[in-house]
Design a protein around this nucleic acid. Structure first.
Length: 436
DNA sequence: GCGATCAGCT
DNA sequence: CACAGCTGATCGC
C-alpha cells in the first residue's frame, strides 16, 4: 500500500490516511498543522478530534460510517493509472470511535487492519461486528491480516469486561465508607465507569477535560467535576500509585484533614498490564496464605486474594490498590477465535515493540488458511522474545519494583494533587469548576 | 520561543 | 522491554 494509503502512520507520500482510534500511540506524528492529505476516521473519532487537535483543518477529515462500503479513487504510484480501493469500517470495541479497516481493490488485494480491538464472544457489540464483518467480506478471503497482538500469547487469559466490571462494583460496594479512585486514561474504559455509576447509583468524578469528552459521547449527566457529589473518582494513571494511596489514607486519620473531606481511600487499577508481570508462575508475586515474599519487594505487598463469593479474584498491590484484568485489548483466546473466523492467508502484528511481543504467527499461524502459493514458513521466535513465555523472575521483579517505587518529588505530588488523586487542591478547584 | 523527540515515570 | 499518556529536558529552527 506504499504510496497509496497508510493506517495509523503519518509519513509523507500517501494519498489517503486512516486513523483507527484516538490513543496517542496511534497518533504519533499527527498534529494540528496536518497537511499531508485526507484523513479517514469514524464518526465518533471525528466528533472528538477537534478537541485533541484544536487548529486541525477539519475539511481534511473524511468521516465514514461503520458498516457500509465506500469507494475511493487513487493513483497507482507506478503506472500512474487510476485504481479503486473499497473501504469498510468495523467496530473494534477498544475505545470510543475505534474501528478496524477492511480494504479491497485490484492493487490492494484484501487486507484487514484491526487496530487495537477487543473481541468478546459474549458481547452484543462483538456479535454485531462479526455479522458486519462477514457481510462485508462476502466470499473474499483476507490476504493480509494486520492484527492487534498486544496479548498474543496463551498466557494472557482474562474474562470479559462485563465480569470484571461486576467485580469492581462488588469491591466498591464492600467499602461503603471509602473514597475510591479508579485509574483510567483519556479515552477508554467508559463502560466500566458507566456500569459502576448505574449499579451503585452514583456519579463519577472526572477532570474537566474528561467531562468534556464524556459530554460529547452523551454520558455527561453521570459524570461530574464536583468532588462533593461523589466518593468515586476516575483519575489518570500518572496520578495513581501506591504512594498516593498511602498518603491519602494517612491524611484521612488526621484531624486537620477531616475538614478537607479526606477519607480512607482505595484504588482500582483496571488493567491487563499488572497481569503481565505474573508470567507463567501464578504465584510469583502472590501469597496464597501467610507465606508471603513481600520482604523481597520493599515498600509493597502483593496479595492474591479470593473474594468473598469465591468465584472472582483480584490482586492487591500494596494495602489499598485492587488490580483487576479489565482490558480493552483482546485476550489470547479471543485473538484465536478471531483468526478462526476470518482465516487470513497471512498474519502480521501491529504492535511494533520488538521486545515484549511475539510474532503472532508463532501461536496463531497454524490457524491461517493454508495457501499453496504464498504460504509463510512458521515463524520462529526471535531470541529476545522467548522470555515472554515465562518472563524471568528477575525481569518481573525489576518491573514490579519499578511499579512500586516510591516517588519523592514534590512537583510530582503537586501534579498528582491536580489530577484528582488528592483532595486538598480539588476542594476549591472542584467546586469552582463544578458542572453547571 | 516553539515544535518535535526522547527519557522517565505510573 | 509498556495498555496509554503526562511532564520535563533537550535539540534544531
Amino acid at each position: 500500500m506504499e504510496g497509496m494509503i497508510s493506517v495509523d502512520e503519518w509519513k509523507e507520500g500517501s494519498q489517503l490516511y486512516f486513523l483507527t482510534h484516538l490513543h496517542s500511540d496511534h497518533m504519533k506524528g499527527l498534529s494540528s498543522n496536518w497537511n499531508k492529505g485526507p484523513l479517514v476516521c469514524s464518526p465518533i473519532t471525528a466528533k472528538l478530534f477537534p478537541y485533541k487537535f484544536t487548529d486541525f483543518d477539519l475539511s481534511l477529515l473524511r468521516v465514514l460510517e461503520i458498516g457500509p462500503t465506500y469507494s475511493f479513487s487513487l493513483l497507482s504510484p507506478f503506472s500512474q493509472l487510476e485504481t479503486e480501493v473499497q473501504v469498510t469500517l468495523i467496530d473494534a470495541d477498544h475505545c470510543p470511535g475505534s474501528v478496524m479497516y477492511l480494504f479491497r481493490g485490484d492493487k490492494f488485494k484484501c487486507r484487514l487492519y484491526t487496530g487495537d480491538f477487543r473481541w468478546e464472544a459474549t458481547s452484543e457489540r462483538a456479535l454485531l461486528a462479526k455479522t458486519k464483518l462477514l457481510n462485508a467480506l462476502g466470499n473474499d478471503t483476507i490476504d493480509y491480516l494486520y492484527m492487534d497482538n498486544t496479548y498474543c500469547n496463551p498466557l494472557y487469559s482474562f474474562p470479559p469486561r462485563e465480569v470484571i466490571a461486576q467485580q469492581v462494583i462488588d469491591i466498591i460496594a464492600s467499602h461503603p465508607e471509602h473514597d475510591v479512585i479508579i485509574a483510567v486514561n483519556t479515552l477508554g474504559k467508559e463502560d466500566l465507569l458507566l456500569r459502576i455509576s448505574r449499579a451503585l447509583n452514583i456519579k463519577i468524578w472526572v477532570r474537566p477535560e474528561r467531562l468534556q469528552t464524556m459530554r460529547l459521547l452523551g454520558f455527561g449527566d453521570i459524570f461530574t467535576t464536583n468532588r462533593s457529589l461523589t466518593r468515586v473518582r476516575a483519575v489518570p494513571m500518572y496520578s495513581f500509585g501506591i504512594k498516593t494511596l498511602e498518603e491519602l489514607n494517612v491524611l484521612s486519620t488526621l484531624e486537620d484533614y477531616k475538614a478537607l473531606l479526606i477519607r480512607p481511600t482505595i484504588g482500582i487499577l483496571p488493567s491487563g498490564l499488572p497481569w503481565l508481570m505474573r508470567g507463567s508462575n501464578e504465584n510469583d508475586y502472590s501469597c496464597g496464605s501467610d507465606k508471603s515474599n513481600i520482604a523481597a519487594v520493599p515498600g509493597a505487598q502483593v496479595h492474591k486474594c479470593k473474594q468473598v463469593e469465591g468465584s472472582s479474584s483480584f490482586t492487591k498491590i500494596g494495602r489499598y490498590i485492587y488490580s483487576l484484568p479489565y482490558s480493552d485489548h483482546s485476550c489470547f483466546d479471543e485473538l484465536q477465535e478471531f483468526i478462526k473466523l476470518v482465516q487470513p492467508l497471512s498474519l502480521k502484528g501491529i504492535v511494533l515493540s520488538e521486545h515484549c511481543n511475539v510474532d503472532p504467527c508463532h501461536y496463531l499461524g497454524h490457524l491461517c488458511k493454508p495457501d499453496q502459493v504464498t504460504e509463510q514458513p512458521r515463524k520462529k521466535l526471535p531470541r529476545k522474545d522467548k522470555p515472554v513465555v515465562g518472563c524471568s523472575k528477575s525481569f518481573k521483579r525489576k518491573k514490579y519494583m519499578k511499579f512500586c517505587k516510591v516517588r519523592r518529588s514534590r512537583v510530582s505530588l503537586l501534579r498528582r494533587l491536580r489530577c484528582g488523586a488528592k483532595i486538598t487542591e480539588s476542594v476549591t478547584a472542584g467546586c469552582s469548576i463544578s458542572d453547571s
